[in-house]
């Protein structure tokens, strides 16, 4: 099954580049949905043992939440706030892709230096996890539209989640579902706030959120 897993992992590079290179929020949300879907499938193909009820439930919850619900939710927020495009990011879209390429190379290099205890081979999953964490941070730091920052947060969280999965760590189901629930509520509240921001500031450009400072 590992070849399947490797394929899914490699596919997980794609959404990151779409998000870095696209100014259209719709495209970013589409990439987010693709990423969520791949994340849901990942635990199924990485299992060495036959698929248990626990794994199936987890995969279904992940696909339903990260692949469908969250992107839909953000799309709704986008419609209500009437924004379509990122505006003047701190780093342009072309340059962001270059940052992404550098991040990808860096992630692979770091993963060769950090073999997991008990194995000598560098783990592809660790590299992909690091890449997604980098992409998440890049989006968070360089994008001004509130919606894109939420996307950045989700990519960051997914990266960390892939790292957890690469350990084949058997977290209790309650904790796994708790993590998913937290992410869901976080994005739900953020979605509501994006709407309020667009109403209060006529914009969801977080650059305008600068009254509170010293």
């Amino acid at each position: 099954m590992t070849s399947w897993m490797d394929m899914i992992l490699v596919l997980l590079i794609l959404p990151g580049f779409v998000m870095l290179g696209s100014s259209r929020l719709q495209a970013c949300l589409g990439a987010l949905a693709l990423q969520g879907f791949l994340m849901g499938v990942l635990p199924l193909v990485s299992a060495e043992s036959p698929i248990t009820a626990r794994l199936a439930l987890l995969a279904a919850a992940t696909v339903a939440l990260k692949g469908v619900t969250l992107p839909k939710l953000l799309e709704k927020a986008m419609r209500r706030a009437e924004v379509r495009h990122e505006v003047e990011p701190f780093i342009g879209f072309g340059a962001s892709i270059l940052v992404g390429i550098a991040a990808l190379a860096g992630s692979f290099w770091v993963s060769t230096r950090l073999p997991l205890p008990g194995s000598t081979e560098p783990s592809l999953a660790v590299a992909i996890a690091l890449f997604n964490i980098f992409v998440g941070f890049t989006l968070l730091v360089t994008r001004k539209v509130a919606l894109n920052q939420v996307v950045g947060y989700l990519v960051l969280e997914s990266g960390i989640y892939i790292f957890g999965m690469s350990l084949a760590l058997e977290l209790p189901l309650m904790v796994e579902l708790g993590i998913l629930l937290d992410v869901f509520v976080a994005v739900f509240v953020m979605g509501i706030m994006i709407f309020h921001i667009s109403r209060a500031f006529d914009h969801i450009d977080t650059d305008r959120l600068s009254t509170l400072k010293e």
Partner: peptide, 26 residues
Amino acid sequence: ARSLEAAWKYLLICSIGIALALLGNF
């Protein structure tokens, strides 16, 4: 507007911080 700004910063910064704590757990 100001309480909205405060709540947004709180939610985003703390969520990112706590995401790093999740990495720490892993």
